[in-house]
């Protein structure tokens, strides 16, 4: 084994080694300074209040009503919460394509998230048709003390709203609202979604 390495001068070999290490280090430095996944996947957020229409990329959404109480009744089942339910009504009008308002997550000031698609939470929203408003409903259960200041994130997608537009609507819940909801003895009724704003 008369090696090739022995034919190449030591200086050249050392130089090559340094170059390789330098290239690898440079690559490391560049990847370390690239924006992370949460940064380049972040949605384009529009903040709004109850009653304000948000123009998302693929349609318009407006939260029309926020209500709450200890127990809810849907046409499917009735649930009493160890915490409190917050029930949110909104209207979704797609602009160009038939779509479902799938991502509806309540987020607290402490960063806790309550996904309307999971657990006993309620999500009524159909295949919405371009130009035709659909009244959707959702309800999530959460601890009363985390309710004040909570917002709802809404996007017409099913998993992550990354890369696309997202509405963040302040639910306008205060300590007084929570007290009022806790004192309620009646059941919050949640009807199914309806097509159109009225027939």
């Amino acid at each position: 084994m008369t090696s090739i390495a022995s034919r190449i001068p030591v200086r050249s070999r050392v130089g090559t080694g340094i170059l390789i290490v330098a290239a690898l280090s440079l690559g490391r430095v560049v990847t370390d300074h690239m924006p992370g996944q949460d940064r380049h996947e972040r949605p384009f957020t529009t903040a709004a209040k109850v009653g304000q229409t948000v123009h998302l990329r693929t349609g318009d959404v407006v939260v029309t009503k926020v209500d709450g109480g200890k127990a809810i009744a849907t046409p499917i089942e009735a649930d009493a919460s160890p915490g409190l339910w917050v029930a949110i009504d909104f209207t979704w009008t797609p602009r160009a394509d038939t779509s479902v308002l799938g991502y509806k997550v309540v987020r607290t000031t402490t960063g806790d998230t309550y996904d309307s698609l999971l657990g006993r939470n309620v999500s009524f929203c159909g295949n919405s048709i371009p130009g035709l408003p659909e009244s959707c409903r959702m309800a999530v259960e959460m601890p009363p003390d985390r309710m004040p200041g909570a917002v709802v994130d809404i996007a017409p997608v099913f998993d992550s709203p990354g890369y696309d537009s997202l509405a963040t609507v302040d639910l306008g819940i205060t300590d007084e609202t929570v007290k009022k909801w806790q004192a309620r003895t009646d059941v919050v009724k949640i009807p199914m979604n309806t097509v159109g704003t009225g027939s």
């Binding site: 089942e77 009735a78 649930d79 009493a80 919460s81 160890p82 915490g83 806790d112 998230t113 309550y114 996904d115 999971l118 657990g119 006993r120 939470n121 999530v140 259960e141 959460m142 601890p143 985390r146």
Partner: peptide, 19 residues
């Protein structure tokens, strides 16, 4: 099951204690 109203508990919400 969530015992008080016997509904199936498929997800547990943050901060809530279920029986």
């Amino acid at each position: 099951y969530n015992a008080p109203d016997t509904t199936v508990l498929s997800s547990v919400a943050p901060g809530l204690t279920y029986e």
